[in-house]
């Protein structure tokens, strides 16, 4: 089983978001970058499948050299090798074209992405990859079993879940459910040492796609002070919701 796992680099979830350069740039100073949490579920599932069925797990990241710590982390968690496409990830379509290009030259049976990245929340990459490569994508995917050349997958539909099946290869948009949080692997010393000797290939960007340019960032308006209501007077809350907020 040849498995590819796409990982993106995002600000840690506790990051207080702020901007510099006349609000044209994200203020990354002091920000810790992590593997997009959804991608870790994919990476963990990939490693479990490798354990079961044998094969290799390659991680791929589109981004500058300064993002390499997240790639090393993925290797320390257990991926066999890594590829970095050396360029700024300007948007989901650009990322998808770069990854697709790599996949065309190195075929894979299974491709994991996250269901979305938590910085831009596009959720575009798995489906754009699917369209470019003509391989089905299921995202978000909350269950995956491989039997022979078939993948059995579970996704969300209105009011619940749907089980689907398809022949490999398939693209899987990962999230919790694919594996549980308790299955996520924290790299140990051995893994960290090993990760330094694992291959990390750096390739040049092939496409020149840029479908959006940041003009300006804005923070949401400050909340006005919270109106406190006495716990003994819930009727007042009801009346505020009816007459002031007009929501009920």
């Amino acid at each position: 089983m040849k498995i590819l796992v796409c990982i993106s680099s995002v600000p840690d979830t506790t990051t207080k978001i702020s901007f510099v350069n006349d609000n044209k740039e994200f203020n990354s100073s002091g920000v810790q970058f992590i593997i997009n949490p959804y991608d870790e579920f994919g990476l963990t599932k990939a490693l479990k499948i490798k354990e079961q069925l044998g094969g290799t797990v390659t991680v791929i990241h589109v981004g500058p050299a300064s993002n390499e710590p997240i790639i090393r982390k993925a290797l320390a968690i257990g991926a066999d090798s890594a590829v970095r496409i050396d360029g700024e990830a300007v948007d989901g379509l650009m990322v998808a074209h770069e990854i697709a290009n790599y996949v065309k030259n190195n075929s894979f049976d299974l491709i994991f992405t996250g269901r979305e990245s938590i910085d831009y929340n596009g959720g575009i990459v798995p489906h754009a990859l699917s369209a470019i490569l003509n391989i089905p994508a299921i995202s978000p995917c909350v269950g995956l079993e491989i039997s022979g050349n078939e993948a059995h997958l579970e996704t969300f539909v209105d009011g619940g879940k749907e089980k689907l099946k398809t022949a490999l290869p398939v693209i899987v948009g990962s999230q919790k459910g694919l594996v549980e949080e308790s299955d996520l692997i924290i790299p140990n010393m051995r893994g960290i040492m090993l990760s330094r000797t694992k291959p990390l290939e750096v390739l040049a960007v092939q496409n020149n796609i840029n479908n959006q340019k940041v003009a300006k960032y804005e923070l949401p308006p400050d909340k006005k002070a919270c109106k406190m209501i006495d716990a003994g007077n819930v009727e007042e809350l009801v009346s505020l919701l009816q007459n002031e907020a007009k929501v009920i």
Binding site: P11, I17, F19, N121, Q212, K213, V214, K216, Y217, L219
Partner: peptide
């Protein structure tokens, strides 16, 4: 952008 923590004009 940033999971509802900000807006961006593109």
């Amino acid at each position: 952008a940033f999971s509802n923590k900000a807006f961006v004009k593109v």
